[in-house]
Design a protein around this nucleic acid. Structure first.
Lengths: 141, 141
DNA sequence: TTCGATAATAGCATGCTAACCATGCGCTTA
DNA sequence: TAAGCGCATGGTTAGCATGCTATTATCGAA
């Protein structure tokens, strides 16, 4: 059984991304870009890029490009940080905030459809497994 | 709890890929390329590209590039298919077969480390959840 | 001959590392 | 105390790998 784990988890992740990308397409947004906006809102606006990257568990250069797109679409803003001239503080624009509802509704609906028929208990087990794997990964290196 | 699922599964998948890439690096191979060789061996050599892509659940153009690299490294061969001049039959080279043991050993060791402390029962639950999600995804579209 | 299937190509999105600026901070030293 | 040197940190850029879709070329089959 264990042998299937890495292949199958990768497959589920690919499929999920693909489907969310499809459903957000007409809003001009992708899974990754929505996810950046989602974490920005959840983490409280005014985060620095470093902080947001760490929250999303991605590397800084990956985030930079997501933010470039989002800024180009005027969904977020990078504002100078008064205390530290190296840093930028991130904020949603009014337009960005307006879109968030619709995007999040669609992501939620997809999640409900994808997890249909999965019991709360099984979700808990799965998330616990994920947690253990992340801890194990953290231990090394 | 359900809300965390999509974010966390993506995170685990990213982390896993990164770690396996690291551990295979000195062999000149990545997770994706090893995976192609693994499925080719598992599915029986002589598969066509279409068949291998379908086995791996990736799209054909994604596989084409993986095979380009692997062929360049002389780990696999694309042989013409006698019955159908459009198709190519895939085979590991002798060199490729020689590498497979070491690569698979490393992938197995990583898997054991990543899943350390996870009970067989929890693995089963998790794989069942994955199965349900893939079915649900299949239903739509 | 026309329609479908196989592979390849082109181009985008998003992961990553490595290398680079600019700025900030801390420690030594005059 | 003040100056300055050197390392750390925030962000960016460049370049690779691997997902995807859309399109094309070639061939097979009805």
């Amino acid at each position: 059984m264990r042998e299937q784990f890495p292949f199958t988890i990768a497959r589920v992740t690919r499929r999920w991304r693909k489907m969310l990308d499809e459903r957000l397409k007409d809003l001009g947004v992708t899974q990754a870009r929505w996810s950046a906006m989602f974490y920005l809102k959840a983490g409280g606006e005014g985060l620095t890029q470093r902080e947001l990257a760490s929250l999303m568990a991605i590397e800084n250069p990956t985030l930079v490009r997501l933010l470039d797109s989002l800024e180009g679409q005027e969904l977020i803003e990078r504002r100078p940080c008064p205390n530290d001239r190296r840093a930028r503080r991130l904020h949603l624009t009014d337009g960005g905030r307006a879109f968030m509802d619709e995007m999040t509704t669609r992501a939620d609906r997809l999640r409900d459809e994808m997890l249909e028929g999965v019991s709360e208990k099984d979700i808990e087990v799965t998330l616990r497994v994920f947690g253990t794997v992340l801890e194990n990964a953290h231990k090394q290196r």
